[in-house]
């Protein structure tokens, strides 16, 4: 350990350990969320979910993973090879970069960059590119239509996310996520900015392409959207990225509005995970409660309702901060 630290320095060693921890967390999180999704879906539909494999079906995700690994990786003949192969790999970059700046506890952050939230927002626009490459590279009309719809939706909902996080940044005068959590020592920001919390949550759910906003991957309309031509392990990668994105949206909502890792008795990281998974449960609840919105209604919600509301919120916050 000491020789390694003398070659690259303690700071770099701490970062590498943090990155390995983050990778392990991403995998474990995906396993937990696939299990939770199927159980929650089952109970919402008045049936029990998986219960055969292990107690309460807890080993079910491992069985799913083994099944997906065992499938034949089929590459269609006329795909555009560099784009087709690169898309599932690129979709992980924004996810992993976002995990670098999220504070799990007061000292458990891989690297607290002082433009932290901008890193997350900037790299979430990279996931749009991987959807584009998947859609174009598949050489398939349905995939292209799904990709175009997904990108239109992503662009439309990226703006309310930016505009609803901006009042919190104005109140804290800092971009770094740790100082935003530290500034909530008195009262959590959800009480100061309830409208911004609602707008951020709705826009965040739309960004991750979950129902009720999941027209791009609607199973009954477009075969499977932009990941039509992907099978086996590559499809699993897209799936994994979607679940981890769900967790990141909840984690940012918790950090910005619900106090991050602060809480009375238990250590900080348990409070953080509790609050984040509560919001993830709410997202899953939404999936099995609401029907899908139509595509023009989808864009109308963003451009005609969320953006004017977030602008008004921003103006009111700016005005009240100066008085």
């Amino acid at each position: 350990m000491e020789q390694l630290a003398s070659i690259i320095g303690w700071e770099a060693l701490k970062m590498i350990v943090g990155l390995i921890g983050v990778l392990a967390f991403v995998v474990v999180n995906a396993l937990i969320l696939t299990w939770a999704e199927r159980k929650v879906a089952g109970h919402m539909q008045r049936r029990i979910g998986p219960k055969e494999v292990g107690p309460y079906g807890l080993i079910q995700p491992i069985a799913d993973a083994l099944k997906l690994l065992g499938k034949e990786i089929l590459t269609p003949r006329a795909v555009d090879k560099p784009l087709y192969y690169a898309a599932p790999m690129l979709i992980f970059i924004p996810v992993l970069v976002s995990f670098v700046v999220i504070p799990f506890d007061a000292s458990l952050v891989v690297k607290d960059i002082n433009v932290g939230i901008l890193v997350i927002l900037a790299f979430s626009s990279l996931s749009m590119f991987s959807i584009l490459m998947a859609g174009w590279g598949s050489n398939n009309k349905y995939a292209l239509m799904g990709a175009i719809r997904s990108i239109a939706q992503n662009i439309a909902y990226e703006i309310p996310i930016l505009l609803s996080l901006l009042p919190v940044i104005m109140m804290t005068n800092s971009f770094s996520l740790k100082s935003i959590v530290e500034a909530q020592n008195g009262l959590w920001f959800v009480f100061y900015q309830p409208l911004a919390f609602c707008i951020y949550f709705i826009a965040g759910v739309a960004e991750t392409n979950r129902t009720p906003f999941d027209l791009p991957e609607a199973e009954s309309e477009l075969v499977a959207g932009y990941h039509t031509e992907y099978s086996g392990m590559r499809f699993a990668l897209f799936f994994l990225a979607e679940y981890t994105n769900m967790f990141i949206v909840s984690a940012i909502a918790v950090t910005f509005f619900l106090g991050g890792y602060q809480g009375p008795f238990l250590p900080g990281i348990i409070w953080f995970l509790l609050k984040s998974y509560l919001l993830v449960f709410v997202i899953m609840w939404l999936k099995w409660t609401f029907p899908r919105v139509r595509f023009d209604q989808l864009l109308n919600i963003s451009w005609k309702a969320l953006i004017p509301l977030s602008f008004i919120n921003l103006l009111i916050t700016g005005g009240l901060l100066k008085l």
């Binding site: 927002l121 900037a122 626009s125 990279l126 292209l144 175009i148």
Partner: peptide
């Protein structure tokens, strides 16, 4: 200038390149 670097990614990669990509796909 880390702020400018993140703004570059947000504006150029996130908006301008996606716009060009949209046009490429609709004409493409």
């Amino acid at each position: 200038s880390p702020f400018l670097s993140m703004m570059q990614i947000l504006i150029y990669v996130g908006a301008v390149s996606v716009l060009i990509a949209f046009a490429v796909m609709l004409i493409g």
